[in-house]
Amino acid sequence: MAMRGSTGAYTNGTRLMVDARDVHKYFHNNEVLRGVNMQVLRGEVVVVIGPSGSGKTTFLRCINHLEKINRGRIYVDGKLIGYRETGDGKLVEDSERNIAGIRAEIGMVFQRFNLFPHLTALQNIIEAPMQVKGIAREQAEARGRELLAKVGLAQKADAYPARLSGGQQQRVAIARALAMDPKLMLFDEATSALDPELVGEVLKVMRQLAEEGMTMVVVTHEMGFARDVADRVIFMDGGIIQEEGAPAQMFSASSNERLRTFLGQIREE
């Protein structure tokens, strides 16, 4: 499929942070992704919405190869994810070390936080920089405390995850991802597991990150966040991208029947 969009910049490879082409994914015989094409520009905030089972979370997990794709290609910052291209154009699975190396540059925030419960907040944050990047403890801790302050949890450095609220845990998880200095951040329904009163504090951090120019792909049900923060909104359903565009257009002016039904259901909740 040709590059979509109207900016023209999409054809300039160096400006593309994510370039997914014809991505297919099966779970057994169930085709969850049926040819997804998505390009994300450097510094762009793309919000992916859609009903559950639409494949949006699966697609996000394909971007850092937590799920293997069965067909198509995904490039992040020009690098093919999960596979190596042989001389004759065939794809073979990349080495674990290379995949890990690419993942180290992609931050991911999970719905269920997935903080390491045996480590304190600060230890959670410095673990990967020290073990993966080989950064010295002193440096890693200084940076870790900086990041904790940034997400408003400077005083919780020594708290174990079990002692933190859901919102606090998710903010630590964001700080943990940021500690690797990622080029791209993936958010997988980062606020869906939170009590309603805790959603705001996490969205605030995400908003701040967007303002600082971080490239973000955000899967969420928070339509307010999509409307305010997204540069572009993508609506997925049935394993493909049904519609995409600027938030204003998507939320009020779309003619796509599925999207309007979906938005109607969301508003009723």
Binding site: F110, N114, L115, F116, A128, V132, R176, A177
Partner: peptide
């Protein structure tokens, strides 16, 4: 399994994730 995934998403290899994250728990 989210523990292993979180570790991998941070750039850890399977063996490092096992050693530092999964086995201690």
């Amino acid at each position: 399994v989210g523990q292993l995934e979180a570790a991998k998403s941070l750039g850890m290899t399977y063996s490092l994730a096992m050693r530092r994250i999964v086995l201690p728990q």
